[in-house]
Design a protein around this nucleic acid. Structure first.
Lengths: 223, 223
DNA sequence: TACAGAAAAATTGGATTCAATATTCAATTC
DNA sequence: GAATTGAATATTGAATCCAATTTTTCTGTA
């Protein structure tokens, strides 16, 4: 086990990624090298190395001699990301379901209970992922799981926190419970179909709210 | 349209990526900053920025204060990559098939003919991808297509050129023809199932050859 | 000879400096 | 007054320089 010694570049990458994914740095934010360097108390070199890394991750867009901005996702792109998730996560679930043990069901139920109780949005999003991941892990497809997680986080950040869950939390909780029940019954086909609907409907809900928000902003801009 | 002015870093990224994907820089190759800088006639700064970018793309692994190496893929990882491809490409095909027009069939057939005639391995691999992409494009899922392409190229490079196609080219050509026929008949279910088998069988063939190769190398190492 | 430890060399990480490009804004022209 | 040009400023891109870490080599000892 080689302990990856931390470098300045690595810390900057982690910090920026966290801030982008959390929404603290919303899309289209300009990332000035000098400003970031001053903020973190380092030179511009590690900042630039970090920006290049984040660009390859798709979180940042760089234009030579102009600057870096937090990358945006069009509504079409967003929808496609959810479709990819639906396609891959149903597969993970199908592979995983025959291997789900009682202990894992209990863990999933504990997460569900937490999601019903805890009202903090930020936490809910993490618990939501943990719940899904708990059901997928026995499939033993680490790359797929990592890919899907990346898509989940990257898409989620585009929603300003107040609107992320508005009006959908109870629905999501119910759907999660149904999914879990179907898994327990061992009905692979129905569980998979339900998961697909769960993801695609979630996408539709988010997109309609996002469109409403943009209309609103457009009006404000014109006024 | 903003013309992306080329930067040194960008050129280095493109060059290194091409060399890695083509197999010119095989896995586990050490990438010395100084050596690369001298080779390209630049300073180490753009080299390092490029390495960070390639690390995020998964083509390079960096260890702080030790160096960068061309990343490897375990056999399990390789198999999983092919499973992801199978899952996503069948989806692309299902979405695309109802929209396939005659012109596109002709293009696919032209590519097939080229693959039957041309014996150069390197070219065949490109034509192979072009054939698949031609069938998927009408699905209009650009991100998925880009993702699948990346997986294809990244997995392919792990096979030294001589063994990539040994003994499988004719089989692949036949399977491609069958796939095309099923598409023309509009049989979505069978076409999709055939594509899945095509991808998964291809994976199995490559993996068995790779295992044989590694055994051979292992024997040579002990001798 | 085999091994442990220290000095030397090689290599990477990061800061500073210089060069190239883009942006801003005032002066000028129509 | 609006559009345009060009100098001044700001920002990024890349080379050089210094520091920190790792690897290699050398040396002495059992």
């Amino acid at each position: 086990m080689t302990l990856h010694r931390v470098t300045t570049t690595g810390r900057v990458v982690d910090l920026l990624r966290e801030q982008i994914l959390s929404g603290a740095l919303p899309e289209a934010t300009l990332l000035r090298q000098e400003k970031l360097a001053a903020e973190f108390g380092v030179s511009r070199v590690p900042i630039r190395e970090a920006l290049h890394q984040l660009e390859a991750e798709g979180l940042v867009t760089m234009q030579s001699h102009k600057g870096a901005v937090v990358s945006s996702l069009s509504i079409d792109d967003l929808e496609e990301v959810y479709e990819i998730r639906a396609r891959l996560e149903t597969w993970l679930l199908e592979q995983s379901m025959p291997l789900l043990a009682e202990q894992r069901y209990r863990k999933a139920e504990a997460l569900l209970a937490q999601m019903v109780e805890d009202r903090r949005d930020e936490l809910w999003s993490n618990l939501n992922w943990d719940f899904h991941a708990t059901l997928y892990e026995p499939a033993n497809r680490p790359q797929t799981l990592a890919l899907v997680r990346k898509l989940y986080l990257n898409a989620y950040r585009h929603f300003p926190l107040p609107i992320r869950l508005t009006g959908s939390r109870e629905k999501m909780n119910r759907e999660h419970q149904v999914l879990l029940d179907l898994c327990r019954q061992g009905d692979v086909a129905r569980a998979s179909a339900h998961l697909e609907q769960h993801i695609l409907m979630g996408a539709r809900h988010l997109i309609s709210r996002l469109k409403a928000l943009r209309r609103q902003e457009g009006d404000a801009g014109r006024a």
